[in-house]
Design a protein around this nucleic acid. Structure first.
Lengths: 148, 148
DNA sequence: CTACATTAGTTCGATCATGGGACCAGTCTA
DNA sequence: TAGACTGGTCCCATGATCGAACTAATGTAG
């Protein structure tokens, strides 16, 4: 008699599979010098640029870790640090054209996964799934929770 | 205009929140010398004991990584290696009483999360969610996929 | 306007996680 | 029995992670 798998573990399985695929697709497109931790950090960068401390908060890591990741991303030419005009202490982390060039690949793979899942579940169940997951963010997303 | 969050990311958010909570609960119960990677590995151990290579496969890590994790878990008294009677090369990784003592805490927190989610979504949507996630395993779970 | 507290970011140093490559000792097979 | 295969380990290099302490800029109370 096996214990039922927790819902969170079911989510982990699927999200990990998706993450791996996106990561592999980006690698195969030639951007093979980014790691998962680095790309997760990059996902938090807005188009105008984002402060390091905000990136750390979004990725749920310490500032020192974010510093180290940005260092490597900068050396690899994916991001650059520019002064923040509104605060002399701060700097904004911005994507370079190289990082922007990688985005379409990632998005395309995301879309492909999304389509496969929809095909497997059917439109109805897929919509219910997304709807339930979105509702769950209200009590699980630290970013949403922090800003309310 | 923001792009809709991918379904896999929605799953990541919730599963990460749950994982963090379970991890913290176990820590606060006194088992504060286990790391996340180590506990993920432990989750793959069956009651009779499990081979290291199987654990590595389940956790999707290399054998060397599993060796290192088991080393630490063994030193901390959570697991032990016993010879595998059916194969002289192999050894079985088994949980010690200490690890078993931590299980109820983890399960209790899991159940609590599960209950909170059910309360937030309602029974109907929660069931649909679990059902959809379970169906998705058919195309995303490397363990299921490998054994078919 | 000055002194003190706060904040953004960095550096140092320690520990854990991870996997490539090489290796040994059992096991299986032709 | 020889050679292929498999389970596991060791060595080693790299990445990720964070506590603690620090610098520089900003904000604030008096």
């Amino acid at each position: 008699m096996t214990r039922e798998l927790p819902t969170s573990l079911l989510m982990f399985i699927a999200s990990r599979a998706a993450g791996d695929r996106i990561f592999r697709a980006v690698h195969e497109a030639g951007f093979d010098d980014v790691t998962i931790a680095q790309s997760r950090l990059m996902m938090g960068i807005d188009t105008e640029g984002t402060r390091l401390s905000v990136l750390a908060e979004r990725a749920q890591i310490a500032k020192q870790t974010a510093t180290a990741l940005v260092d490597k991303l900068e050396r690899a030419g994916y991001v650059q640090r520019v002064p923040d005009p509104s605060d002399g202490r701060a700097r904004l982390v911005r994507m370079t054209p190289r990082a922007e060039a990688a985005l379409p690949t990632a998005r395309a793979e995301e879309d492909r996964i999304e389509a496969e899942w929809r095909a497997h579940l059917g439109a109805e169940r897929m919509n219910q799934l997304r709807e339930a997951l979105t509702a769950l963010r209200e009590i699980t997303d630290p970013y949403l929770l922090g800003s309310q």
